[in-house]
Design a protein around this nucleic acid. Sequence first.
DNA 1: ATTAGCACTCTAAGATAGAGAGTGCTAATT
DNA 2: AATTAGCACTCTCTATCTTAGAGTGCTAAT
Lengths: 342, 342
Amino acid sequence: MIINDRMKTILNAVVHLYITTAEPVSSEMIVCYYGLPVSSATVRHDLLVLEKLGFLKKPHTSAGRLPTDKGYRFYVDKLMEKNINSLSEEEKEEIIEQYKIGRDFNEIMIITSKLISRLTNNLGLVLAPNMVRDTLKDIHFIALDNQRLLVTLITNSGLFFQKIMKVNCDISEENLETISQIIKKEFYGKNLEMVNEEMLKKIYQYSFEYQALESIWNLIENCFDFTVDNTKVFLGNRSYILKQPEFKEIEKLNYLFDFIEEEENLVKIIKRSILKKQIDIIIGSELGQEIMQNCSVITRQYLIKGKPRGAIGVLGPTRMDYSKSISVLEFIANRLSEILPE
Amino acid sequence: MIINDRMKTILNAVVHLYITTAEPVSSEMIVCYYGLPVSSATVRHDLLVLEKLGFLKKPHTSAGRLPTDKGYRFYVDKLMEKNINSLSEEEKEEIIEQYKIGRDFNEIMIITSKLISRLTNNLGLVLAPNMVRDTLKDIHFIALDNQRLLVTLITNSGLFFQKIMKVNCDISEENLETISQIIKKEFYGKNLEMVNEEMLKKIYQYSFEYQALESIWNLIENCFDFTVDNTKVFLGNRSYILKQPEFKEIEKLNYLFDFIEEEENLVKIIKRSILKKQIDIIIGSELGQEIMQNCSVITRQYLIKGKPRGAIGVLGPTRMDYSKSISVLEFIANRLSEILPE
DNA sequence: ATTAGCACTCTAAGATAGAGAGTGCTAATT
DNA sequence: AATTAGCACTCTCTATCTTAGAGTGCTAAT
């Protein structure tokens, strides 16, 4: 069986109509809305073939048809117009507007996830940049008060990482200076992961040399016991996806929320797309999660200093508007890559 | 009509049973579970009185009874045992454990909101400390790369506030030092709100004196155009409240989410409790929000350096476990006040 | 003041029936 | 060989009805 052009048109029609109406699509509907020069009976014949090929399915014998995951896949790969201009001028302006104000890093992630939610009517996702492969460039100690230090670690890509360090003794600026000198000398240009691992050894080594610093070294030891791989996912507004008809049964919603609020689940899905240059679309069962069978995730890398460092995404029902979502992600990822250090 | 002791017991019983079963409570149930030395007919008589007084209501004629907002209010004010020990040892340990690691500020807020969600089975809320009344203590510029500066503003209470400043020209350390000296000199000890307002004037004043710094002043102008009153609400996991039977209809859930994801709504509710020394309980219609009529919010201030600066809270259906929620909030607020600078 | 007894009310759940949507097949047509 | 009109068939969805059961409120007796 070969898929001819008309069948492609029909498949495309089913996907489109199903995406917009959320109802199984009948042969009549297709003829009506797409003005095909054939009768509904002919369309029905083609539908039958498309179903046999696994692109479509019926919820029950006397219902219209809707795309299978394979159907969506074909649509996304072969049929969908990659029309980046499906964003209106207003929407583009809205996005640009959001990034004008000089925000701090966390805020940018939050804003972005909410923006994606609003524009796609689904759940926006942002995977914060991962610093595992970054190298140490600088370290600063700032006294917040006489008991707490703010330690700021700056990496080669201009990202930073902060911890608050509790000190129970007075620490002179001089000592801090010595320490930051030592750390810089020992670890400058070294991989953060290595810094993490070797800090302990160095602490012991130097604690002989600078006995006065011993107590501080202990603090630093705790302070640097950080998991560099602190991949963080920011979720946008949930209120939009809540309104999607596929979640009108509370039970499905429960499964969805249990899944998405377990951070690792999403990290696993999004992470793999950081290094992909193209939009990454994962449809339904491709997610490999029983619970998420009727959801799709679309992701897009973003760059920092020209290098892929994180990703943004949309999570919605498989019946989501792929074209629109892609446009939104492309546009926002590009903005983000501009905003974040080039 | 006077409420005698038996009636109080009965009201208490209705609240308890309704909280645990989520079903209207019958006279029989009360006798059965509370071993009252009277018959169900007598209980029915009292129930009638309690209903006439407005403490109870029936969903329909032949159903059991459940508390009205007034009923919950009476329960909360007069009947409920304020038993802080309703937390198990394990739960306490779990809380303490969470705060052992030296986390950054944002993380603490996130962790806390999630912790509250999990322990109360409802939605945890955290209102980040407000810095409007803080005064400037210190300012630091850290170069992230040759195009961006991390500006850290430290306040008298040891809180800090950060912005990223984009610079399109090289700025010498010397110049930065001069600027931070000037800012410290002019604004040290001054209210942040005032700093915000007067920065502009000062910039013009000094731009005559130090013409070399002009371009930097412009940047700082943008940088300090911050709303100090950036009250931020952190929401914990939604998955728990989703499972409450009052939200089994998707429509109600939609209303709820539309409300809670509009940050100002929650800020308005929580803000007022920052200065209250006691647990603050707002029941149903007391929230003054049509949409939130069947929800309650419980809040508790937390301290920084002994002063009330923010609040944590729980949002759940009016049929929530007030006693448990209060215990959770008390305990966490105390931990938080210890963790954050004393 | 309390209680047993009972009629009454309302809901929740199950059963039944009919309308309507949409299909798949067949036979006729182009 | 492809297309189409016609139609029987299937399944869902909605409405209506019925019944069981839970729980009340009232009355009269204790």
